[in-house]
Write a protein that binds this DNA or RNA. Sequence first.
DNA 1: CTAGAAATGTTCCAGCTGTAATTATTACGG
DNA 2: CCGTAATAATTACAGCTGGAACATTTCTAG
Lengths: 142, 142
Amino acid sequence: MTTPPEAQAIAERELCGLVNGLAHQIADHVRQRAVTLGLTAAQATALREMTGPMTMRELAERMSCEPSNATFVIDRLEKQGLVERRAHPTDRRAKHLLLTPEGSALRERLLGLLSQDSPLAALTPEQQRALQALLEKTVTRS
Amino acid sequence: MTTPPEAQAIAERELCGLVNGLAHQIADHVRQRAVTLGLTAAQATALREMTGPMTMRELAERMSCEPSNATFVIDRLEKQGLVERRAHPTDRRAKHLLLTPEGSALRERLLGLLSQDSPLAALTPEQQRALQALLEKTVTRS
DNA sequence: CTAGAAATGTTCCAGCTGTAATTATTACGG
DNA sequence: CCGTAATAATTACAGCTGGAACATTTCTAG
């Protein structure tokens, strides 16, 4: 009952397509909601991941992007008065990102919108936990 | 044993991050291999999805991107002599995409590279099937 | 048959993304 | 200590991406 290597390779490629498809579906969902708040998808993703004060690098990691990209996005959010770049308390290289009151309020509205009609709602909470377990197994080993 | 709605929303956001993270990991993997063949990540993805003759729209769907994006990528692949745009047999609006012999050969080399050290290799074949089932459930309902 | 709706592909454009190079700062081995 | 390596953030740039507008062709209701 061993899987032939060729069939295995094809299955993996299909799986890549599915993962990419779902990621895209999530991004589309974010984009749709974000535009109603005057945000782009990338800005909304950054706001979503701003669960508290953090450095640029931490944010980039949470967004799964390069630090240069985080710089670009935070530049925009800062110009809109949603985020502040402060000096880091203990490391003069780093920046301390902070949500302004406006940013914090907008984030709450965003989270409310994102929780509606999520693409993941097709799964039961139990299935979501199963999915989470499988994803963590692949993502956290690197 | 019902999940409170707030905790549910947080779990969904984390799940979004995980999906995005894995998609990114796959894209990085593709990028690394692609560059050794003189291809960009987007070109390699297009080549990977060219399982046979298809239209621009079909390719765009397989790549989970907009048709305009497929136009951009195929433009490059055509200039490199890897793909041909022919007239569609039955629909004069559509284009019939075809791999050239060079394109077909490069695709085989690419598939060989992609099957090595796949991020999905962290999962057993059985776990991969479970993941596929869960992903299909969310992707195919729209 | 025909007029309007829908589909296919393309172009243009604003915005996103990774990479490489750069500066400033911190960490570490000797 | 000191010099070197490592880290944080930024900049410049080439390439990717979605959306809107468009021309061509096909579909469809009447």
